[in-house]
Design a binder for these strands. Structure first.
Length: 194
DNA sequence: GAGAAGATCTCCT
DNA sequence: GGAGATCTTCTCA
């Protein structure tokens, strides 16, 4: 399994978001391996996107969004949850893709332990849930996804079946809801909301 | 230094 | 379908 190269990430955020669907998110920790198929994402931009953390310029938290693509941007929200994003675009152009849902492929027992539940359907069907299942925390913030051995994204090993992409307005934000920048794989059971 | 809001989840009805 | 949990981050004084 080979991590996607830098040039995959240093492109337009919406293109990266769309092409991330169907890819594999791979996580190695404590000798165990977890893999999930990316089935739902949301794109976030810069000053043109009021729903983005980066809409008012750089701050200590969002500075990663201004780096070149290919880094992990993880933040803590609502006092309980971590959200995992992939940084996109060239240096000084803010952009990131929030990974909202995965279809568990491998390491399902480990994910169940991490989440403390038995239902596979509820393991990774939301941004906070998949971070907990894969033990993604602030420690992974700033990780280089093109070089890291513990967390990266790659092509699927088997041939990926063709799927249809649905785009809707984004979830959980109050501004910038006019942009249809939430993308998910049609008819997939692990998408967070229909 | 204080106050408010947040890219969510879970539990309860 | 709705509220509460709970803490980080940003804004403003």
């Amino acid at each position: 399994m080979k991590a996607l190269p830098r040039r995959f990430y240093t492109r337009n955020t919406l293109i990266v978001a769309e092409e991330l669907l169907g890819k594999r998110l791979v996580r190695y920790i404590d000798g165990s391996e977890m893999i999930g198929r990316i089935v739902e994402v949301e794109a976030y931009g810069g000053s043109d996107d009021p729903g983005s953390h980066a809409c008012r310029g750089m701050t200590p938290r969002n500075q990663l969004m201004f780096r070149e693509g290919g880094f992990a941007y993880v933040y803590f929200i609502y006092g309980k949850h971590y959200c995992f994003n992939v940084v996109t675009e060239k240096r000084n152009v803010p952009g990131a893709v929030l990974i909202r849902a995965l279809e568990p492929i491998k390491g399902i027992e480990t994910m169940k332990r991490n989440r403390g539940i038995h239902s596979v359907l509820n393991l990774t069907n939301g941004p906070g849930k998949l971070a907990e299942a894969m033990k993604i925390t602030k420690k992974q913030n700033g990780l280089d996804l093109t070089k890291s051995k513990e967390l990266f994204i790659c092509e699927s090993e088997e041939k990926e079946e063709r799927f249809e992409i649905v785009s809707t307005r984004r979830i959980g934000i109050k501004v910038g809801v006019d942009k249809p920048w939430r993308l998910y794989i049609k008819n997939n059971k692990f998408v967070s909301r229909k």
